[in-house]
Amino acid sequence: MASIWEWANPRKFMAWTDRALPVLSVVSACIFVIGLVWGFFFTPDDYRQGATVKIFYLHVPSAMMAINIWGMMLVASLIWIVRRHHVSALAAKSAAAIGMTMTLIALVTGAIWGKPMWGTYWEWDPRLTSFLILLLFYIGYMALWEAIENPDTAADLTSVLCLVGSVFALLSRYAVNFWNQGLHQGASLSLDAQENVADVYWYPALVAIAGFILLFVTLVLLRTRTEIRARRLHALDMRERVQGQ
């Protein structure tokens, strides 16, 4: 066990995920359910917002994941560019669809929450707008993966796009802030979060976030396994075609 890169060997990756996934699935399902059930049914209603506040347990974790998944894709793309581990590129590809779904969940729950809070489903508020832009980036990234036939070329080009896209996503975030100071509250959860959110909301929120993270890890491993199998199939197909000549 010399280096951590051993884990990036496709065969090793398949072996350890095969053992880890059943456990991981059960654990993440439990944590996910506990977090949401605790959040939905065992917290008091907010004195101002009533029960609507509880959508918070879907909205905040999914929004956090939407951003962090892009970060994970950036890291995975860098690893692919520098070290050429196929598993890394495929993990980035697998993560994109999950990231896009998280962005959609954050947008939709935000809209549902926004109606009673601000009286509107949609407002061109910097945070909302940024998430819409993030959604566009996810769509573009996935579309590029789909469009390129050769898997290695696709991995290279999407990695470059992810790198450049990250810079422009940050720029957009800044530009959008500049363009419109919005009505969205500041981040509800940060290191000094206790100031914003009372403990009774805070603990289930932490569990819900942990649930979302575990859910993401489980899904990304599962999807990466699928992608590896798809790559093997592709390689077999190529081999047959070459030999058939």
């Binding site: 060997n9 496709p10 065969r11 398949m14 581990h85 196929h86 590896i228 790559r231 093997r232 592709h234 390689a235 081999r239 070459v242 030999q243």
Partner: peptide, 14 residues
């Protein structure tokens, strides 16, 4: 030749 493993590390795809 198609039936040999060239690169033990990323063998899975070839």
């Amino acid at each position: 030749r198609m039936d040999v493993v060239r690169d033990d590390f990323d063998e899975a795809f070839l």
